[in-house]
Every structure is written in C-alpha cells, then in structure tokens.
C-alpha cells in the first residue's frame, strides 16, 4: 500500500511536471482574430503567436479600398474575439457592412475586441475641410496607407497588443514577450531602412495613387506628381496634360505604381515621358516571397534602389 502510494506520488509528480511543461509551451486559449489586411494579420501572428488564429479579409493583391466580401469572412468576423482594422477610412467602403452582417457586438466599433490602428496615428494630408464638401476625396481623414510607413510597425504592433490584452488577459506574459521580440526585429529593420534611404534621398518619382506617400516621405524621395488628380479619382485629360507638361524637363525619375492601380495609364505616361515603371508590393502577399510586413518593406526599398540607381 505504502509502496503503491509512493509509486503513485512519483507518477503524480511526473504528470504534474509534464503538464506544466506542456502548458508553458502550448497556449491554452485560442483567440480568433480577423484583420482587414494581410499586413495587420502578419503583425497579429508575430504578437499573438500560437495563442491566436488569424484571418485576413483583403488579399495582398486587392485594392484595399474595394474588397468583395465572401461568406467565410462574415462567419469569421461573427466568431471573432478581435477585429483589427487600419481605420482612417481605408476600409470604409466595406467594413461597416461586414460588421453589420456579422452581428458580433464584441468586435463592433467601440467593443472590447475592436482595434482601430488608425487611432493615435498622426496622418499625413488631412484635408483642411474635413467635412468633405470640397469634392471627391477617398482619404477624408488623411492618408490611411500608413502600413506603408516604415515607422508604423511599432504603432500597429502596440495597438494589436492592447487589443489582445483586452480580450485575452491570461496571455499577458506571452503576448508581451512576443511583442518585445518583435519590437527588437522592427528596430533592427528600421535601422537597416534608415541606412538604405541615404542611397535614395533626393531621387524623383511620379506615383499613381498616394498609397506610398509615407514611404516616399521616409525615404526623402521627391514626388513630382500623382496620376490621380485626387485619391480615388481617375485622371482627367487636363490633369494628364498638365502632368506630362510638368515632366517634360525632368530627367532620371521613375513612375511608382501598385498592382491595383490603372497600369494602362501608367504605361501611357511611361511611353510619353520615357520614364521606367516600378511596381511595388502594396501589401504582404502581393507578390511571391513578400510574406511578412518587414519583408514587404525590404522588397519595396530594394526595388526602389534598383530602379532609381539605374536612372
């Protein structure tokens, strides 16, 4: 009996040890997260690690202003514990409908599972008249493409961490540890990009849409013009004529575009100005090998260096 008891205690201790080891390595809870764009989904994975299951709504190749919702995405949002959006009206054409259809109070605007990364971000190009009375503007709250700003990584990661802590406070240590690791990686990457930008400073570009506004500012590139007269508004003949005229005496610039832009008009401008076109990845997943937010920024900067140093 005694022996038995002793043997039983040893087994119990062994089980307890194994269990605690397993608990430490395998997260208990699974937090279901829906992110509007793959960039945010990547950062959620970095911070949430194994405790989260992430669904991204937009594909990397899609125009993030205009996304067609599929049934699984509404179900995912309905079941989500956390919903992460960029905000600043980037997704305003489809997120309200998605949240209404999903009828999940926890992730509705103002709910504890709703993360708006645009909150607290100092946007560029905020219109003086925010009431949008001055004609067409797809960016009524300023430029919302701050996921393309090399400085924005820590901000987005911080917002996601706050959201995860709200919906899964038990995972605090785990999330904070992941956040710290990811912050270090971001720091290293930022230093790398700051070094690279020395090679790009003062170079000239023309863009189609203003999605790369933050990136060009960071890199110190001079934007000679945009093919869209206003964000979301296709070029008018007079605007194109003015743009071509203004570029007549310019040399050594490239036209920067993304996959979702109207690249026929980009090609036409390239033909008329003899400037080469460089297509940059818009988001994570927009091209082969562009799998992480840090990696996507590397690809963009390297592509720009390759294109502009040739000119």
């Amino acid at each position: 009996m005694v022996v038995k008891t002793t043997r039983g205690s040893a087994k119990g201790i062994l089980y307890a040890l194994l269990t605690s080891l397993l608990l430490a390595s395998i997260p208990l809870a699974e937090v279901r997260v829906v992110a509007t764009i793959p960039d945010l989904a990547d950062i959620v994975r970095e911070v949430g690690g194994d405790r989260v299951k992430v669904t991204a709504i937009a594909k990397g190749t899609e125009n993030v202003h205009e996304v067609r919702i599929r049934p699984s995405q509404i179900i995912a949002t309905d079941r989500a514990d956390l919903f992460v959006q960029m905000g600043l009206s980037l997704e305003h054409a489809w997120v309200p409908g998605l949240l209404t259809a999903a009828r999940n109070q926890d992730v509705s605007v103002g709910g504890k599972g709703f993360v708006n990364c645009g909150e607290g971000w100092e946007a560029l190009d905020v219109p003086a008249d925010a009431s949008r009375k001055r004609g067409a503007d797809l960016h009524p709250n300023g430029n919302p493409h701050f996921n393309l700003d090399p400085h924005s990584g820590p901000h987005m990661a911080r917002k996601i961490l706050e959201g995860l802590l709200r919906v899964d406070p038990d995972g605090r240590e785990y999330y904070e540890a992941n956040f710290a690791t990811y912050s270090k990686a971001l720091d290293v990457a930022l230093k790398r990009w700051e070094k690279q930008r020395e090679r790009l400073k003062g170079h000239k570009i023309v863009v189609y849409h203003t999605e790369f506004r933050y990136l060009t500012k960071f890199l110190g590139l001079e934007v000679l013009g945009t093919i869209e007269p206003k964000p979301g508004v296709p070029p008018t003949p007079s605007h194109l004529i003015k743009l071509i005229e203004s570029l007549k005496d310019q040399r050594g610039f490239v036209i920067v575009t993304a996959a979702w832009s109207n690249n026929r008009q980009v090609a036409e401008l390239s033909r008329r100005t003899s400037a080469p076109v460089v297509e940059l990845p818009g988001m994570v997943g927009s091209a082969a090998g562009v799998d992480t937010w840090i990696g996507s920024m590397d690809v963009r900067i390297n592509k720009l260096i390759a294109a502009l140093e040739k000119e």
Partner: peptide, 8 residues
C-alpha cells in the same frame, strides 16, 4: 467622379 467619397 464628382462624389465626395470618390468612385469606390
């Protein structure tokens, strides 16, 4: 085109 929200 003239919409205050843009075409999208």
């Amino acid at each position: 085109h003239a919409s205050p929200t843009g075409e999208i």
